[in-house]
Design a protein around this nucleic acid. Structure first.
Length: 730
DNA sequence: AGAGTCTAGCTTTTT
DNA sequence: GCTAGACTCT
């Protein structure tokens, strides 16, 4: 595309940001303001009019998906392949750097990336080695602590325990963990960034090279950068003015995992020459939705300040539905979606967003009952599935016999008679001789130390791997994976397991073979051949699998309702959006209510949710919600009340409203709430000859066939056929 | 080794 | 009140 053509399609603010002078810049880009366009066109503009080579640009995104998208858009614009261009996540860029400069970084040439799961297992092992009681010091917490330190750029010797037992204990775990990582050539996610940062500081020549090379640095989602990422950017930038960051402080929702909203707030003092741009025109939502979003977020202090506007028109009010309980809430949503579909819309155009994953179950059940197609995002990702991880562990052993994590995972999977006891012997031997589990196992089988039976089982395993390695030497990646899955016994194992679960696992393993078939390292612009001549295709595949967990599964092509947490909805948009469970204690979550900072983050999360909606937004809440086994009676979320009532249309289906959301509701619409084809109402009090008094919670069916769920004061909740139960209205 | 039993914990999640 | 993970028993 021609440059003038590009510029003409932009609004004045976007154009100003795209054509900003080369220097420090802060682009505050509101939700739906065309941020991605600005970023890619900035690069195109720099390349086409400023004579800047794309290879002199460093562009950082937060997810691999965003990186891939940006790359392909830039390639499209510039009509040239940009394989060597540095576009990627902080982690993938650091990985690329470390592969190229492993020696300077003090790493093994064949270092491998371990993911969160490997990390947890490793820490568990360390806890037992150090004889630390994992009841008192949970491995999960230790991992969290270690990562938090690394995210802050802190090594063990930067930390003083000051006599604090908590810190002292975790510090000793951190030390042992680091040792284990170094010994095994393992690098965790945080380590990638920390290590690159340290290497640059320690190697002035390298640092100079990269500072020279990158004339421009662009960062997306800057509000989500953590301390080490910011430090990393500062080092690469040096004293030059070449860093353009794009972000939205109102959409910072990852503070709980180390993101520092302060980074965006203090950018201008760190880069005093920075020019700031505000993208406030929104191309996504109706005026009403934006007014609601603006009103909500204004309750936060310390904002950089920004108000979204649109010329798309007012649109419908936001509907607020006060459900009797979570089941009623789900049914209301189902009913609205059916309506939406009946009007000729697609299911994929509506999304149900919620605060926590636990809410999805009731919603899912409602979808199933109504036979609506749906897709739940989140949950387990492809490369995190147990069977995939096991297959990958075999593959890893093929390339890296000394990978202890892989060894532990599959020595006895499928079961081959190597019990805990034998594994412990191997572990002890490995630790005392400072060798890998593989080497220790090999020694034990040749020099004794195991029971004869265990010994033969272990050598069977070792031979299996060695033989497999030889047998697959000349195979392509897909066949190598296929052969591995087969020869390892994993396939037979899951075939034997049978059932739907086993079937799904087999299908996933097949999917892995397909992934191998379609894997093309050239698609992963992470590896320059010049940089990593020694990496085999398998190694590249494994690195890729660790670094990119892969999207959750599901038919992407099927037209289905999109269900996800508000966190995972960031960056997406849908014509019809439901925000479900808007109740105090759930959203804002109980655990975030006491601290102002965390409450503000919850509010930003709500803001993110609201701004996903394009044309119609529904809020729902339940007066009674069954959560963690107990019924909770929650008030409507304060976030709802922070939005002016004039923007909201309240919908009620029943009279038993304990606490109306608004004392004086301007618009209240009533919808039918009777049990279909009967005189009974949801939430109605009824009497039963045997069970006494109760309240109707739910129903299914119609008229004579209707069944109702009644919560009786004396005997609890029961499902009753209405035609038999002879309920009395009270 | 596998099934059955018990118990803690229970927000959000990418790399 | 459910579920995952640890633990126990056969």
């Amino acid at each position: 595309m021609d440059v003038t053509e590009i510029l003409e399609s932009l609004n004045p603010e976007q154009r100003a940001a795209v054509t900003a002078p080369q220097g420090s810049a802060l682009v505050l880009a509101g939700a739906g303001s065309g941020k991605t366009r600005v970023l890619t066109q900035r690069i195109a503009w720099l390349a086409q009019t400023q004579g800047l080579s794309p290879f002199g640009i460093l562009a950082v995104t937060f997810t691999n998906k965003a990186a891939a998208e940006m790359r392909s858009r830039i390639e499209e614009h510039l009509a040239m392949p940009l394989r060597g261009m540095w576009v990627g996540t902080f982690h993938s860029l650091a990985h690329r750097f470390l592969r190229a400069h492993w020696l300077d970084a003090g790493l093994d040439q064949s270092f491998q990336i371990i993911d969160a799961d490997d990390q947890l297992r490793l820490v568990k092992r360390i806890l037992s080695n150090l004889s630390i009681d994992d009841k008192k010091w949970p491995a999960k917490q230790a991992v969290w602590w270690i990562n938090a330190q690394k995210d802050e750029g802190l090594r063990p010797n930067h930390i003083q325990d000051e006599g604090d037992l908590y810190i002292r204990t975790h510090l000793s775990i951190y030390r042992a963990y680091e040792e284990a990582c170094d010994r095994g050539g393992m690098v965790d996610f945080a380590e990638l960034l920390l290590r690159m940062h340290e290497t640059l500081l320690a190697q002035p020549a390298l640092l100079n090279h990269y500072r020279e090379r990158f004339k421009v640095i662009l960062v997306d989602e800057f509000q989500d950068t953590n301390a080490i990422q910011y430090a990393w950017l500062r080092v690469l930038t040096g004293n030059a003015d070449k860093l353009m960051v794009v972000g939205d402080d109102d959409q910072s929702i990852y503070g709980w995992r180390g993101a520092k909203i302060e980074n965006i707030q203090r950018f201008q003092s760190d880069y005093p020459n920075a020019i700031s741009y505000r993208l406030e025109q929104n191309y996504r939502s109706t005026g009403t939705i934006l007014d609601a979003a603006n009103a909500l977020i204004e309750h936060n202090t310390d904002r950089l300040g920004k108000a979204l506007w649109t010329d798309l028109g007012r649109g419908d009010p936001v509907s607020l539905y006060a459900a009797y309980n979570e089941i009623d809430e789900a049914r209301y949503i189902v009913e609205r979606i059916k309506n939406f579909f009946a009007e000729g819309n697609a299911y994929r155009d509506c999304a149900i967003l919620y605060r926590s994953n636990a809410q999805s179950r009731v919603l899912e059940e409602a979808m199933l009952r109504s036979q609506l197609p749906y897709r739940i995002y989140g949950g387990q990702r492809f490369f995190e599935r147990a069977e995939i991880r096991s297959a990958l562990a075999y593959l890893k052993l093929l390339s890296q016999r000394h990978s202890d994590a892989a060894f532990e995972r599959v020595v006895n999977l499928p079961p081959r008679g190597i019990g805990d006891k034998s594994i412990q012997i191997i572990r002890d031997a490995a630790r005392s001789t400072n060798q890998s589990l593989w080497t220790a196992a090999l020694n034990l089988t040749t020099h004794g130390g195991l029971t004869p039976r265990a010994s033969s089982a272990v050598s069977g395993f070792l031979n299996l791997i060695d033989d497999l390695d030889v047998a697959t030497e000349n195979l392509d990646l897909a066949h190598l994976i296929e052969e591995t899955v087969d020869a390892s016994g994993l396939k037979a194992f899951y075939e034997k397991e049978g059932g739907e679960k086993g079937q799904a696992r087999l299908e996933n393993l097949e999917e892995l073979v397909t992934a191998g078939q379609t894997f093309d390292p050239d698609d992963v612009p992470l590896f320059d051949e010049a940089v990593q001549p020694d990496m085999t295709l398998l190694d590249e595949f494994l690195s890729q699998a660790a670094l990119e967990a892969g999207a959750g599964q599901g038919d992407q092509n099927q037209d289905s309702i999109q269900m996800m947490t508000m966190h995972s909805a960031k960056g997406l948009e849908f014509p019809l959006v439901f925000l479900a469970g808007l109740e105090e204690g759930l959203f804002p979550h109980q655990m975030s209510m006491d601290e102002p900072g965390r409450l503000a983050e919850e509010r930003r999360l709500c803001y993110v949710g609201v701004t996903r909606a394009m044309t119609k937004l529904y809020f729902t809440y339940a007066e009674t919600r069954r959560l963690n086994g107990t019924d909770r009676y929650n008030r409507v979320s304060r976030f709802v009340q922070e939005i002016p009532a004039t923007l909201i249309e309240e919908v009620r289906s029943h009279e038993a409203l304990v606490r109306p959301a608004y004392q004086t509701s301007h618009q209240v619409k009533r919808v039918a709430s009777e049990v279909s084809g009967t005189e009974f109402q949801l939430g109605q009090k009824v009497g039963h000859a045997k069970f006494g008094e109760g309240v109707i919670l739910n129903y299914e069916g119609h008229g004579q066939q209707a069944r109702v769920q009644v919560k009786f004061e004396a005997v609890g909740t029961k499902w009753l056929m209405l035609s038999f139960a002879k309920l009395q209205s009270i």
